[in-house]
Design a protein around this nucleic acid. Structure first.
Lengths: 358, 358
DNA sequence: AATGCGTTCGGGACCGGTCCCAGGAAGGAT
DNA sequence: ATCCTTCCTGGGACCGGTCCCGAACGCATT
């Protein structure tokens, strides 16, 4: 179909080896021949075939991104970080929406292996170690971004969810709240459990024993937050504040609160987690714990490329823990006192300094 | 590295041709040999190499998606539609964020050509025909989703922006508004101009001559909407309603309005365009013109695959125009009267019926 | 003059598949 | 018995590159 390297060679009066050399910037090519080749390339509008090249270099310049749903602003931001960094490394990213379905995820992994991607970034992880054996045996590197699988040995970059939960809860405590509810995510998601852990630590540090009645499970969605908050409100437990496991649930909670004619933050204070764009809205102004979403993606991609380029070939897996950041807006009332973001008690972990981004 | 088709052949005691046959579901293979081959494939965990296959079938099972920014919820939704449909066609999509930069876009096009993608979907289009010649000469099909280039002959799927602008403005008129401002997008974007056209038609139909003073250009972003609305308010032009070219600008407008202590919709009514997720929020409840975002992506992908599969090989380019839908929420006040969504006057276009989706 | 080294280049095997072509076996028709 | 089909299978060219190997040449060294 299109012109091949042979056509260029013929036109330039050289062998295809030589064309290949100038294509790959080999210095051992006479200036004159190089120019002839370049001229020929331009003349017939030659574009190298990445398939053929990838076939024997075993590098495709493509990575896979497995994500639950790109429509989710949190994931979109992570994806953006991944894509930007891939672009810096002259790579492309193949987008895979799994909706959290293990079957779809497994199918995508197979496809990506067929395409011989250089590596994979997992954002949504419902699969277990067994699905990774294929990647392992083919030495296709992969890293987890945002979430981790406890029993899978692999690079990962996550936010410090325990610390985040601690910050959110501590903020509420400082404002004088005592009865603080926790709107949890699904219990099998480590992020939600870690945030809960931070919540408990903050409470205990303030001399308050966590009350199981004040914890209710949701699904990380607005609807779930709405239902959970409504249920909590119905029981009249004397709640004055609520910490939602993510912003979507906080949104649902707000809705439930307003629906009952209660005011935020006067009657009930609300703090979320993630800092998705809507939280910033003038009309919402949600106080929340921000995750460095873009950086999560960018750092994950950077780690992946370090594996791909062989720099970190056989090093043990690394775990980058990024700090969350409490963003104080309106839903908790103004807090102007001294900030206290002391680290919660927990086993010290050797967190490498975050890899720089961009 | 990994096992190849030859390894399978050796183990199964057949030739690689035969293995290839069972791989591709050729019926002319004896049941017995087929089983032997399948067993061998399983035993050595063989995964076909899509690069090698693509090299001579000239099909990669990959399409490119060129988008300005996946972080934008409108684009994310379109992307989701594209990806879902690609998945149905056993294809992958390569995500390309261009931020609207022509250079980045051109670079991505080159990359996608090198990777020999089966086709490309353009969402953001800043480039002109010249950039498409490469695609044309290589017969790589492409379709535009959401936006079009007037002078480029290609398949496209867009929403009827004129009608949408008409609906939004007409809604405001029916509610009794006379001084209606238009917060435009960048003037080189056809979508914004078309919405303006619909705005003018609705006004004229109501016997009102559009007042240039009431039109102000923004950038499709919240910040731009805020500034534009502020400027408008400062001039005290007697505005009672505003139609923003998209929801982001409407958000900015709301902010400007609230900041001045004005009420929505009592003092000023607001209607947007797009219906991005935030518009639905209880706290916002933006009346807006909804675009079938997902369908735009899905239909575009379907059209692309029709070209790829050769079904629509050499047919003239098609243009699918999808209807917008006015979603009445709170920012204009309740409108309970009879709906009148008459088509505005404009050159009749032979709009094919939308291709069905999923 | 013989040797050695560096630069420049061409030849051709190879990456891992697809697919065309030919050939053998089996079975039916003549 | 011969011929023709049909079904199944193997051989090998080919897709479009990369990269190893070795040849040719110029020039300095001994």
């Amino acid at each position: 179909m299109g012109p091949t390297i042979r056509d260029v060679a013929r036109l330039a009066g050289v062998s295809k080896s030589t064309v290949s050399r100038v294509l790959n910037g080999d210095p051992n090519v006479a200036e004159e021949t190089r120019n002839a080749v370049i001229a020929a390339i331009k003349e017939i509008r030659y574009t190298p075939n990445a398939l053929a090249r990838g076939l024997n270099t075993r590098k495709t310049g493509t990575i896979g991104l497995i994500i639950s749903d790109i429509t989710n602003p949190f994931h979109a931001e992570v994806a953006r970080g991944v894509e930007d960094l891939a672009s810096d490394f002259d790579s492309n990213v193949i987008l895979c929406n799994t909706d959290g379905r293990p079957k779809k995820e497994a199918a995508y992994i197979d496809l990506l292996v067929e395409k011989r991607v250089d590596g994979i970034i997992f954002t949504s992880v419902k699969t277990d170690e067994s699905d990774m054996t294929n990647l392992r045996s083919r030495r296709i590197p992969f890293v987890f971004a945002g979430r981790t699988l406890p029993d899978v040995e692999a690079d990962s970059v996550v936010v410090d969810n325990i610390l985040g939960g601690f910050q959110a809860t501590n903020h509420l405590l400082r404002l004088g709240h005592q009865r603080i509810a926790y709107l949890a995510g699904p219990s099998h998601v480590s992020a939600s459990m870690d945030r809960y852990e931070g919540y408990c630590q903050a409470l205990r540090r303030a001399g308050i024993e966590p009350d199981p009645q004040l914890v209710i499970e949701g699904d990380f969605k607005q609807e779930g937050g709405y239902r959970a908050m409504s249920a909590l409100l119905d029981r009249s437990l004397g709640i004055t504040a609520v910490f939602a496991a993510n912003d979507y649930m906080a949104m649902g909670a707000l809705e439930a609160i307003y629906e009952r004619g209660l005011r935020v933050p006067e009657d009930i204070a609300v703090v979320g987690f993630d800092d998705i764009p809507f939280a910033r809205l003038h009309l919402v102004q949600l106080t929340t714990v921000a995750q460095p979403k873009y950086d999560i993606g960018a750092i994950a991609a950077r780690m992946l490329f370090e594996r791909i380029d062989g720099k970190a070939q056989d090093e043990p897996s690394r775990r980058v823990v990024l700090p969350p950041r409490l963003v104080i807006r309106r839903t908790c009332g103004e807090y102007l006192g001294q900030r206290d973001f002391a680290e919660p008690n927990r086993p010290s972990r050797a967190a490498e300094p975050p890899v720089g981004t961009t």
